[in-house]
Amino acid sequence: MTDLRYAAFAQEACGVSPVYEGLARAVAGDAELLALIDGLPEAKRQPNLLFGTVRLLGGPVESWAGFRAFVVERWNAVAREMRARITQTNEAGRCALLLPVLASLPQPLALLEVGASAGLCLYPDRYSYRYGPHALGDGVPVLHCESDLLPSRRPEVVWRAGIDLNPLDVRSAADLAWLDALIWPEHEHRRTRLRQAAAVVAADPPLLVRGDLVEALPSLAARAPAGATLVVFHTSVLYLVPPEPRAAFVSLVRSLPGHWISNEAPDVLTPGAAGPPPGYHNMLALDGRPLAWTRGHGQGMRRV
């Protein structure tokens, strides 16, 4: 199974990150590395977690030989970090996927993100956007997205909060370093965007609660202000959650007032669902109704 997971990741990275595509394919065919990885809990075997950990520890990722030697020779340190951490990619660019849906809902909004990491996706009203020639807002970061769904405005957000097993704080150099390590090697534009978005968040930090997505959601949702539309959302999070608590979360979020926006691989919420078209990875849905296919870091989407 681990070899298939890394092979699938290589396919996802194809055309997006040649470095990670090559590493993932090589890991998928390396019995010794697979045996080491399989010694970790199933949830800790993810390619992003391994590659991000190696980068955080200062290891090489551009060279397969260098990467492999680093992992084998320093496996105890690598495994220790992987056990202690979770994949927390906090890509502000995904706000460009959420924006057309958020703009269509009754305003103002109370945003509640599940799997919020450092909360960078809780600020869709503060960022600027370019959908081809269609522009919204000024200042930085500017989020570029190829899309046939175009928002007419930025939303009005009066409350923002998030849940995470390990909330990160962009004002912490260590937390920011982990967010940086999770960005794919060639994506310097995303590193710039991370720091620009982090500055926005640091100036007005959100309410972030440490907890389980099912246990913490009801009480946090109840804190949303009256008169605002509650929007619970998540992007590339539920694939990390085992099936039973995932089903419990879906049942819970459907029972709450307001709306639910999901952006997940199609088979995460609908087992056996057909995969996305080439170049796309996730399905954007409102209250369980599919709206668009989306790319992993917010760079594109198209109507279903």
Rank of each mutant, 00 (worst) to 15 (best):
G66R: 04
E146I: 00
N90W: 11
N48T: 14
D138C: 00
R126Y: 01
D148L: 01
L111V: 12
S152W: 01
P124I: 10
F70D: 12
L136C: 07
R85G: 06
L109P: 02
N90R: 10
V78Y: 09
L120D: 12
N90I: 10
H134L: 13
R153Y: 04
W75L: 06
R94D: 04
V54S: 03
I86C: 00
G93V: 12
N76I: 03
R55N: 09
S104Q: 06
L143Q: 11
A69C: 09
Q88R: 12
R83D: 13
Q107F: 04
L50K: 08
V142S: 07
D125N: 11
L149N: 04
V101E: 07
L111K: 11
S104V: 01
A79S: 14
L136Y: 04
D125Y: 06
E156G: 07
L120Q: 13
V54C: 03
R94H: 04
M82F: 06
R80M: 02
G59M: 13
G52F: 09
L50C: 08
R74K: 13
L99G: 07
L97F: 00
P133F: 01
F51R: 03
A77P: 00
V71L: 03
L102F: 14
A84V: 11
Y127K: 02
W75V: 07
E62D: 15
S147Q: 06
L102M: 14
D138V: 03
E81F: 08
R130Q: 15
L97P: 00
D125H: 15
V140D: 03
A116Q: 09
N48Y: 09
E113F: 01
P151F: 03
V78I: 14
P106Q: 03
L150P: 08
S152G: 14
T89L: 14
G119T: 14
R45Y: 10
L109C: 02
L99P: 08
F51A: 03
A84T: 13
R130W: 04
Y127G: 02
A65P: 00
H134D: 13
R153V: 10
L150H: 08
T53I: 11
Y127H: 08
Y131A: 04
N48P: 14
R85F: 09
L56E: 02
H144S: 12
F67S: 01
A92Y: 05
W75E: 08
G137P: 06
L122G: 06
A110Y: 04
W64F: 10
D125A: 11
P47H: 10
L149H: 05
Q107L: 04
G119F: 15
E73L: 13
C145R: 09
L120Y: 12
R94M: 03
L136V: 07
S152D: 12
H134A: 14
R154I: 08
R94L: 04
G93T: 11
N76F: 00
L143F: 12
V71S: 02
E91S: 05
R55C: 12
A103C: 09
F67I: 02
L56Q: 05
L112A: 13
R83A: 15
H144L: 08
G66C: 07
R85Q: 15
P151Q: 02
A69Q: 15
T53D: 11
R130L: 13
E62C: 01
W75K: 07
N48K: 14
R83G: 13
D148A: 02
A103W: 09
G115M: 08
L122R: 06
G52S: 14
L99V: 07
L97K: 00
E91G: 01
D148G: 01
